[in-house]
């Protein structure tokens, strides 16, 4: 099968609606199809990957750890928009450290998250073949 560039655009906070979780479920299935996968976190989507999420008080399963597993599926192009962080009083330090291991570099652990400007994000979005948004 041909390889296409798939972009998962995440713009919604987790838990309030099911979109973040069900987007993540698609990403995990997609990993088996050997396509070129990227994730974008824009607007409230940045809250999906904040660290120290606790769902003890809401009776829902905390699925944030699943993002940390993405590197094991060779999903390592995770773009986070700087303006979206800034607008919400967040910085890169508020995000989970998402990493992958580079087999061509003696399995060195490398960051998956790229903080990009809005302009860079627009260019990344424009370079994709398929845009999934949930």
């Amino acid at each position: 099968m041909a390889t296409k560039k798939f972009m998962y655009v995440n713009r919604k906070a987790p838990y309030g609606t099911v979109y973040a979780l069900e987007a993540l479920e698609v990403v995990l299935i997609a990993a088996a199809f050997e396509q070129d996968i990227s994730l974008a976190f824009i607007d409230d989507g940045v809250y999906q990957i904040t660290k120290e999420q606790s769902t003890d008080g809401i009776g829902m399963k905390n699925f944030s750890a699943t993002y940390k597993a993405l590197g094991d599926y060779d999903i390592n192009k995770i773009y986070v928009e700087k303006e979206s962080l800034d607008d919400r009083g967040l910085t890169a330090d508020d995000l989970m450290p998402l990493v992958w291991e580079d087999e061509d570099d003696d399995w060195a652990e490398k960051p998956s998250i790229k903080i990009v400007s809005r302009e860079e994000m627009a260019a990344v979005l424009a370079a994709q073949d398929v845009h999934y948004s949930f």
Binding site: Y19, V26, I29, A30, H131, Y132, S133
Partner: peptide, 21 residues
């Protein structure tokens, strides 16, 4: 069927169009 049908659909199709909230 499974989510793989969505991915396969997008691979096989020229266009993927999404309707959501």
């Amino acid at each position: 069927s499974g989510l793989g049908q969505l991915i396969e659909g997008s691979i096989q199709s020229d266009r993927t169009v999404i309707f959501g909230d």
